[in-house]
């Protein structure tokens, strides 16, 4: 089985947030429930201040702290599915301990106050156990893997678009959106990326393009000191988050 990994080249990323939009449409997430977000931040001060940005999916860690803390095994790492970390919505009790334990802040409890008004959950009230039911929604639903629109009271997160990548031909090294035979299996954020800053492939396959990119272009994993060992690698200058400092408005 493949070990799916994502490579994001920050020298190519323009911060356009097409990935965020594509993810939101593919997975029917709520405003603010950005499984794939782009963070914008500044580093340094005048005259050497920099404006930077960082696309941030779930890192699908090799040693996921969210999995260890979950008291019900609702959050689990599925090696058979390429090492993707899932949330089983039939088991999640909404204790939110995984959100406490995720160093990357990429887990969401959508049963919270709306980010924008009107509350879209009131506009399209939930049916059949869903938190909300928009008129268009992705027909792919798998609550055991946290795919689809979630019920109330559970945690949601990026699934590396498992409903797409799981249908890819066995043994494929990379899922490249430029390959007409594979484009339908590429995760939404990778497929839509206009400057082609994202790559998706098998980290266990020595021939894969993602491995070549990581090796040749000095790929790094963020917050490596936490020991979580992400399956998402970053290329290019500026892969890192400047430390938080409160600003006085």
């Amino acid at each position: 089985m493949a070990k799916w990994g994502m490579v994001i080249d920050l020298d190519k990323c323009t911060g356009c947030q097409a990935c965020t939009t594509a993810c939101s449409m593919e997975n029917n997430t709520l405003p603010g429930e950005s499984w794939q977000d782009v963070l914008f931040y500044h580093e340094g001060e005048y005259p050497s201040a920099q404006m930077k940005w960082l696309p941030r999916p779930c890192m699908q860690c090799e040693k996921p702290s969210c999995v260890y803390v979950c008291p019900t095994r609702a959050t689990y790492k599925d090696e058979e599915a390429g090492g993707i970390v899932f949330v089983d919505w039939n088991k999640c009790i909404g204790c939110k301990y995984c959100m406490i334990a995720c160093p990357y802040g990429v887990r969401f409890y959508a049963d919270e106050q709306p980010l924008v008004e009107p509350d879209i959950r009131d506009v399209y009230p939930g049916e059949n156990g869903q938190l909300w039911s928009p008129p268009y929604q992705n027909p792919e639903q798998d609550w055991r893997r946290g795919i689809g629109i979630q019920p109330k009271g559970v945690v949601s997160k990026c699934t590396f678009c498992h409903h797409k990548v799981s249908k890819a031909p066995e043994g494929v090294a990379d899922l490249d959106e430029d390959d007409p035979d594979l484009v339908e299996y590429v995760p939404a954020c990778v497929r839509t990326c206009p400057p082609k800053a994202r790559f998706f492939g098998d980290l266990d396959n020595p021939e894969s393009n993602v491995n070549r990119l990581i090796g040749d272009k000095k790929g790094v994993r963020l917050l490596d000191h936490t020991g979580n060992r992400p399956q998402v690698y970053y290329l290019g200058a500026g892969a890192g988050i400047p430390a938080f400092s409160p600003r006085k408005s």
Binding site: Y41, P103, G105, V106, L223, I241, F244, P246
Partner: peptide, 14 residues
């Protein structure tokens, strides 16, 4: 929890 995790200077304040 008041310092946002992994948000760096993206977060305006606590």
């Amino acid at each position: 929890q008041v310092v946002p995790l992994f948000k760096g200077t993206w977060a305006w304040d606590m």
